[in-house]
């Protein structure tokens, strides 16, 4: 190496150093190829199950799909008919949950990120949120049963289901809101404050509009999670079978995930295509919601530049 660098080195020595370096880099290239191949395999291992799940649902359930499957309630011990009541029930549950947890979660996230003073208390709250996100969903169900169904006397109802699911979705929404706020450049806040605006004006007019794509994405992801949850609503909201949609928020309601659980485990001799058709609709619903989140995000992002 020193020979190659020094002008007084002989030509032969320089050539041998170059030869040595070339061998070394050939080895490094081989290592690089192997590493990239490994990464690729992992990627396929992760993506393949998703494709398989959707593909298998399609394969087993496509025959059930029809307009009447979506618009008629289940009949004949749920072995025939459609899935309209659980589908609408899930829709109501999702909407109600969002109405409860979006305002709460977004406002709490704004407070935590923009106004709360850093310190031990804030760290404690963050820790609590992380733990809340990690609580198994069945525990939420039990909590909902104790608090909303029994203590607050909501009974097994849409209202109790929405409240329980809202608790489950809150940490997701708060974390997404904080993350979205973190993405807004500090310069924007400084510029607005330097013009003599208050912190609230700054947050409302400058920070929030710029954080909106991230907040919406988080909201839709929370929504898709809520739409697919089974365990929390088993105890607090879901009806085994209802031929009609709920008339009030204090009525029980059918829900797609729970309906699927019932079809798969509680009812004998259900035709496979009905079960899988239900699964297909549920998976499709979640996929559509997630895709919607991506589209909304891209559209809002394409409008901003910094």
């Amino acid at each position: 190496m020193t020979a190659a660098a020094s002008p007084s080195g002989t030509g032969g020595a320089a050539a041998s150093v170059r030869e040595q370096r070339a061998r070394h880099i050939r080895r490094q290239r081989a290592v690089e190829r192997a590493a990239i191949a490994l990464l690729k395999v992992c990627m396929v291992l992760i993506v393949a199950p998703v494709g398989l799940v959707v593909g298998y649902c399609l394969w087993k359930g496509w025959r059930a799909l029809s307009w009447s499957f979506l618009t008629r309630p289940p009949v004949n011990g749920m072995r025939e008919g459609g899935i309209s009541t659980p589908l609408i029930g899930t829709f109501y549950l999702a909407i109600g949950t969002m109405l409860l947890c979006l305002p709460l979660g977004v406002l709490a996230g704004i407070y935590l990120h923009e106004f709360a003073r850093p310190g031990p208390l804030l760290r404690l709250i963050r820790l609590a949120l992380t733990n809340l996100a990690g609580v198994p969903s069945v525990v939420y169900g039990l909590f909902g049963l104790a608090v909303f169904v029994t203590t607050l006397k909501f009974d097994t109802s849409l209202a109790a289901g929405c409240c329980t699911l809202a608790l489950l979705a809150l940490p997701v929404v708060i974390t997404a809101t904080e993350e979205a706020l973190r993405q807004v450049p500090q310069d924007f806040r400084a510029a607005s404050l330097a013009l003599g605006a208050t912190r609230w004006q700054t947050v409302r007019l400058i920070v929030l509009p710029n954080a909106l794509p991230g907040i919406l994405t988080g909201a839709v992801l929370a929504l898709s999670r809520v739409a697919g949850e089974t365990a929390p609503i088993m105890f607090v909201a879901a009806a085994y079978y209802l031929p009609f949609v709920p008339k009030s928020v204090f009525s029980p309601v059918m829900a797609l995930p729970y309906h699927l659980y019932v079809l798969a485990t509680q009812v004998p001799r259900v035709p496979a295509h009905v079960t899988w058709g239900t699964a297909l609709v549920l998976v499709g619903l979640v996929l559509v919601l997630n895709a919607g989140a991506i589209v909304v995000r891209q559209r809002l992002l394409s409008r901003r530049r910094w």
């Binding site: 450049p185 310069d187 400084a190 510029a191 607005s192 330097a194 409008r303 901003r304 910094w306």
Partner: peptide, 12 residues
């Protein structure tokens, strides 16, 4: 007392 920043930062 207003300020002009290093990076031009017009609002979106």
């Amino acid at each position: 007392v207003g300020m002009v920043f290093q990076q031009p930062n017009p609002f979106t």
